[in-house]
Write a protein that binds this DNA or RNA. Structure first.
Lengths: 136, 136
DNA sequence: GTATTATAGATATTAAGAGTCTTTAATATC
DNA sequence: GATATTAAAGACTCTTAATATCTATAATAC
């Protein structure tokens, strides 16, 4: 019962892309090396992000991925949703509607999702940037 | 990415046991029929609940399962923990400590768990009881 | 002793996650 | 236009966890 590794890769990639100079693209090769995983696998993850409108891609030489124009609005939940889909953590397979147990579980999940919707990845990127400056 | 069916079965079983007269046991046969699943499978789930101290079991004729004496303190989280273990929803497999993304995810999860720890199953049982009275 | 019931072990089945390989399409550069 | 580069998509494999099932064993009531 966990979020998939794909979600982790996606979150890290988005933050990395946010740290790039405006308009510049990064190839999947570089992104994959950074996280030590295979480029083809990561590209499948990134395609989901593109289809969700979170990043943009350009094929061909000097192509790659860059963050979309809604950069400052991308939340944790946006990325999770793009990768995991809109499934619920909990489904009562016994009752078909109005299950009180399911209601309680769903409510708790909704609150978590609301929190994750309020957390923006651009803030993580900023934090990472200032940490780098401290170190140098 | 969801909680297992086992957790659902466990939650429903606990509520059902709470609705029994004090001290009476219910066999796994009956509990399984109620939820339309195999008795041996459910018994494995219930053994986890017993090991976590949430229910008690007595083998032999007239045996079965009953809620433990801490009945009024059993929360959703207690049951989830008993079945799913204490794993986290999110693990950063790239960084080993201090990952800012992991921190944010973990914080949201902690808040959800705190909410689920505050929700008692005995309240669900009471609600179910009063609903039954309305209908009769 | 006999019937009943929980427990544990071994095993099987299924589904999802994780990942690879290959081919195709698009783009830039020369 | 030819070539190199890069994303995308399809087919496929591998592994793991969930979801069971079946059988044997141990405990208990009568």
């Amino acid at each position: 019962m966990r979020y998939s590794n794909a979600t982790n890769y996606a979150l890290h990639t988005v933050v990395h892309l946010m740290l790039q100079p405006d308009g510049s693209s990064v190839g999947v090769q570089e992104l994959a090396e950074m996280q030590q995983l295979s480029p083809t696998y990561l590209s499948k993850v990134l395609t989901k992000l593109r289809k969700a409108g979170l990043i943009e891609s350009t094929p061909g030489a000097k192509g790659g991925y860059k963050i979309s124009r809604t950069k400052h609005e991308i939340s944790f939940l946006d990325v999770i949703h793009a990768i995991e889909g809109d499934t619920s953590l909990f489904d009562c397979t016994i009752h078909h509607e109005g299950c009180m147990i399911e209601n309680t579980m769903r409510q708790a999940e909704e609150n978590m999702k609301a929190e994750l919707a309020s957390k923006l990845l651009v803030d993580i990127a900023k934090e990472a940037e200032s940490k780098q400056k401290e170190e140098s």
